[in-house]
């Protein structure tokens, strides 16, 4: 347990901000705002991690998410064809089920958190957690860390393979079902390029 007035105020501010921002992600009519509310939620959790003394991880989370959420915003604008993104865009299905599932997930997890008796063993505040993490990553857990690295490499290759327009054997669309929305007009003979 960490006790201090300032830390407590900061904790309530960041956790309330983080949860409210998370809720606003699905309550805003603007795609870019949705992405950046999510970033705000992550920044709040990053700040909570810094409060908990996991400073490196909290800052890296913000660093990572700033880029990822910007890309998310660009994707939203790109696919929803709504350049300013200020039109209503509530697009939901199975709303009731989703609400109930969300409430149940929250209630169940919160109940476990409140009822279960977890050991009260706070981290030693004098140790440097960043240095601990570094020694762990390049020591006992090196295999885990390297596996994560190889997974990321495989992900990059796979993502490029899935997303690339032209594969080794021609266009990515070829051999698949015709487009759902528009049919390509047949190309006139002799116009091949």
């Amino acid at each position: 347990m960490i006790r201090s007035g300032t830390v407590d105020i900061a904790f309530w501010m960041f956790s309330a901000g983080s949860v409210v921002a998370a809720w606003l992600v699905f309550r805003t009519d603007s795609m870019v705002r949705a992405a950046y509310w999510l970033l705000a939620s992550f920044a709040g959790v990053g700040a909570l991690m810094v409060l908990l003394n996991a400073r490196f991880l909290g800052l890296v989370l913000v660093l990572m998410m700033a880029g990822e959420m910007t890309i998310m915003a660009v994707f939203m604008v790109m696919f929803m064809m709504n350049p300013a993104g200020l039109n209503p865009m509530t697009m939901v299905h199975q709303h009731r089920t989703a609400k109930i599932a969300g409430v149940f997930a929250f209630a169940g997890l919160a109940l476990v958190g409140l009822v279960a008796d977890f050991p009260d063993r706070p981290a030693d505040a004098r140790r440097d957690p960043t240095s601990d993490l570094g020694r762990e990553l390049l020591g006992d857990s090196m295999l885990v860390f390297e596996t994560a690295g190889v997974t990321l490499l495989a992900t990059m290759i796979g993502a490029i393979a899935i997303a690339s327009k032209r594969g080794r054997y021609g266009d990515a669309e070829q051999g698949s079902a015709p487009p759902a929305l528009e049919e390509k007009p047949p190309e006139p003979a002799g116009m091949e390029h």
Partner: peptide, 22 residues
Amino acid sequence: LVVGAALFGIGVYGALSQQTFV
């Protein structure tokens, strides 16, 4: 843990209710 559960619950709601992939 309650804050984490709240974030998780909102995430469940979002993942189930939204129609757009992003």
